[in-house]
Simulated assay, not measured.
Amino acid sequence: MKFSTTICAVSLVCFLFSCKSGGKKVATTINDVTETTTKPFFKLSLAQWSLNKTFNEEGVDPFKFAELAKEDGFEGLEYVNQIYNKQIESLGFDVVIDSLKVLSATHGMQNVLIMIDGEGNLADPSEAMRDKAVENHKKWVDAAHKLGCKSIRVNTFGTNDPELWVPSVADGLKKLSTYAATKNIDILCENHGWLSSDVPVLMNAIAEVNMQNCGTLPDFGNWCVKRKNGEIWGDCLEVYPDKYEGIKMMLTKAKAISAKAYDFDENGNETTIDFPRIIQMVKDSGYTGYIGVEYEGTRLSEKEGILAIKNLLLKSAKVVN
């Protein structure tokens, strides 16, 4: 770490703490999280994407992430690299990462992982393009190591042809995992659309990589394997048929978990996802790490959705065997 970079980061943190607010205050009408008599078998982290509108549309400073997560009772932080694009452009990569490290320590938060977007396709059929994507991801491996994270989540787009995808993604993942192993960082594949959401195909690719630090990040949502006109995002044409079986398979290699939710009924249960069933599977798998809260609904505010997921996870933990 360069001395000048550290000075800039500390100066930025001091400036942030001198301001009472970096944007509009996030409001909530949800009651405080229900207290539990015993701690759950997992720890709770907040996925930064849950607050993407807060940061990207409402103008709240993304450097306030640790503070906001702490206020809502979370222990861990799951960063999204693209949320800091403007800060990286204006302040520099090292200043941003150093600032996040200082802020997380100041608020007593554990940095868990970084979700990486926009750094190239690790499953591109062209080896030259895959290698470029691997190189682009290396700085985020270094950043995760500096922050004290355990892993980064990568995307595996490039082709949606299984015959091309498995050897291509296995090559990209193995090259990146080899570098990440030197930093004690795990490379995680989420069911994040296309063939990464076709779990048997994904697990076949993970087996091809066959490295201890290459694993999965099961997401409760994200089950679209084919979209209209071959787009990565957009109208879904085909959904993986059994998300519960898919999650069970992914749990065999899970090093992080994303509890995604969209909406809730009058009893606080997710309207399309059986949380207690999944939490039972998580416990049966022996997983005891962080579960990240990721709200992607539209009816509730981001704050309300985050606390609703947190409540539901804690309630589900009470009923599992």
Rank of each mutant, 00 (worst) to 15 (best):
Gln212Tyr: 09
Pro162Leu: 03
Lys303Cys: 02
Leu12Gln: 13
Asp32Leu: 02
Ala180Phe: 00
Gly118Tyr: 06
Gly148Trp: 00
Pro167Val: 07
Leu77Lys: 09
Val209Leu: 09
Val225Ile: 15
Leu173Ala: 12
Ala66His: 12
Ala69Val: 03
Ser151Leu: 01
Asn267His: 15
Gly215Met: 07
Asn56Met: 04
Gly73Ile: 01
Phe41Ala: 14
Glu135Gly: 09
Ile152Arg: 09
Val60Ile: 13
Phe41Asn: 14
Asn155Asp: 01
Thr272Asp: 11
Asn191Lys: 12
Ser126Asn: 08
Val112Met: 05
Cys14Thr: 08
Gln87Val: 00
Asp61Gly: 15
Ser197Glu: 06
Val282Glu: 03
Met1Cys: 14
Leu91Phe: 14
Glu78Tyr: 08
Gln280Arg: 09
Phe55Thr: 10
Tyr295Asn: 00
Leu44Val: 11
Phe63Tyr: 08
Ile278Asn: 04
Asn269Tyr: 05
Met250Asp: 05
Thr272Trp: 09
Val225Tyr: 06
Ser4Phe: 04
Leu307Gly: 05
Glu266Cys: 04
Ile7Leu: 14
Arg227Asp: 02
Gly23His: 14
Phe74Val: 02
Thr182Phe: 03
Asn191Glu: 07
Gly305Lys: 02
Asp142Lys: 15
Gln87Ile: 03
Arg299Asp: 00
Lys260Phe: 01
Ser196Ile: 07
Leu251Pro: 10
Gln82Pro: 15
Leu122Lys: 07
Glu294Met: 10
Trp49Met: 12
Val10Pro: 07
Leu313Ala: 06
Tyr262Leu: 00
Leu237Gly: 12
Pro218Glu: 03
Thr288Trp: 02
Phe93Leu: 02
Tyr290Met: 13
Thr178Arg: 05
Leu44Glu: 13
Pro162Lys: 10
Leu164Trp: 06
Thr37Ser: 06
Lys138Pro: 06
Cys14Ile: 10
Ile273Pro: 05
Leu251Lys: 07
Lys43Pro: 07
Ala105Gln: 13
Ile30Cys: 00
Asp235Ser: 01
Ser285Trp: 06
Cys236Glu: 07
Lys283Cys: 10
Thr106Val: 08
Gly289Leu: 05
Phe65Val: 10
